[in-house]
Amino acid sequence: MKLKKLAALMLTGAVAFTSASAMAKTYKLATNVPADGPPGRLLQEFSQRVAEDTDGRVKIKIFANGTLGGQAQYLQQVQSGVVHMGLINSAMMENVQPEFGVLNLPYVFRSNEEFQSVMASDLINEELFQTTQDKGFEVVGFLDSGSRSIYSTKPVNSIDDLKGLKLRVMSSPTYIEMLKLMGTAPTPLDFSEIYSALQQGMIDGAEGGLAGLYELKFGQYAQYAIKSEQTRLVDLIIMNNKALAKMKPEDIATMNDIMLDLSEKSYQVVADNESSALEKAQAELGVKVIEIDKAPLVASMAPIYERTMQDPVKGPMLKKVFDLQGREY
């Protein structure tokens, strides 16, 4: 009798285990960032915590370093459902949903506090993030990627020193115009070409995160880190609509809570990483950090804002961001 009871209990346990396993789902998350960088580490923590807090019902497998292609490629795969989730920066998102372009405007955020306050608002999380639903995906959260500045092979102490410098820029109309308004000669290049272009003297510097001066050794040639802090891309975590709809409501809530916590955590992680990288760049590569007067740079962006305010899609969103900040420009 005892053996029969034991067998029955084992069978019941096996059925329960099989049912739980059948309910478990593994979601593929594509990203082009390195697994060991700040965003990569945060995504790993996201995956681990979601699996733990949903008792294994939701598992997220991360494909880092562009394993599934570049952002444009896996964005389409997320839309079609071939890939469930992806990390897309706000510059790429602007091509799909123009309202996101407001986040990319130069000096739309003039301080970390201003950026964090806006990103925590309902305007971003309840309004802007919901605008992609008809594109086949939803934004389920974001990670800060820090401010972008200028690094150069020549000293830059004022806006006048920028004139004529050939600076690498992303192939973005907004970014190209931004550098033109600063007086530079913007040079669109793939990110992978920056080091060799600096080495060969094809460019005088670039616009981007200053941590790369040490982490990617750009500081071997670009000896000046100019803290212009003109923009900050936001890394957005997106998920296919149909995949999201199949998740249990409580699992969606768990995932959202974890993502919110990591969004807030990313501010300090990114800031600490840049600070550490700059210290090493100065100590080991001889890089010099320059605190530039940003007021003339901000003023030079007026044409971009005048045009954006007239845009029927971006204008209303920019006005709402300004209202949150208590400013006009």
Rank of each mutant, 00 (worst) to 15 (best):
T67A: 14
L42E: 07
Q200P: 00
V15D: 11
V270Y: 01
L318Q: 04
N241Q: 10
S90Q: 14
V33N: 07
D235M: 15
S263K: 10
E215R: 13
Q77A: 14
G37W: 04
E274S: 02
D36K: 13
S228Y: 05
A277I: 05
D190F: 10
V78P: 05
I150K: 09
G208L: 08
D204F: 08
Y175V: 02
A51L: 04
A211N: 15
E229I: 01
L236C: 00
A283H: 13
S172I: 04
I226H: 03
K59C: 08
L123V: 05
G286R: 05
E114V: 03
I252M: 04
E306G: 15
K265G: 12
E215N: 15
M119R: 10
K2L: 14
V96S: 08
T308I: 15
A271Q: 03
D204T: 06
G136N: 08
T12V: 15
Q310Y: 04
D261E: 15
D122Y: 03
E94M: 13
S172V: 02
Y267V: 11
L260T: 10
E264H: 13
T254F: 06
Q199K: 13
S300I: 02
A253Y: 09
I124K: 03
K280T: 08
V82W: 00
N157A: 11
L105Y: 08
M301R: 09
I124N: 00
I194E: 02
A91P: 00
L143V: 07
M178K: 08
M255W: 01
E284F: 08
V102T: 07
V298S: 00
Y151C: 02
L233Q: 12
V156Q: 10
A91K: 06
L162N: 04
A295R: 11
G81I: 07
L285G: 11
A222K: 10
D261A: 14
T254W: 12
L105H: 07
P296K: 10
N241H: 02
V298L: 11
G205P: 00
V313M: 04
V270F: 07
E45F: 02
Y224V: 10
P34E: 09
P38G: 11
E113L: 03
K135A: 09
I124W: 01
M255E: 01
L244E: 13
K154I: 14
E177Y: 01
Q97R: 15
A271R: 10
M85A: 04
K217E: 13
G326E: 01
L43N: 03
V15H: 00
G219V: 08
E52D: 13
M259G: 01
S192H: 12
R41F: 09
I238Y: 08
F137G: 01
L29Q: 03
K280W: 10
P186G: 04
A8I: 12
S196M: 07
D272I: 05
L213R: 03
L105M: 13
P249L: 00
N240F: 05
M255V: 10
K314R: 15
G326W: 08
E207L: 13
F115I: 01
V234K: 13
Q44N: 11
D53A: 12
A222I: 09
L236I: 09
K2P: 01
P186N: 06
N89H: 13
A281M: 06
Q48E: 09
D257P: 02
G205Q: 13
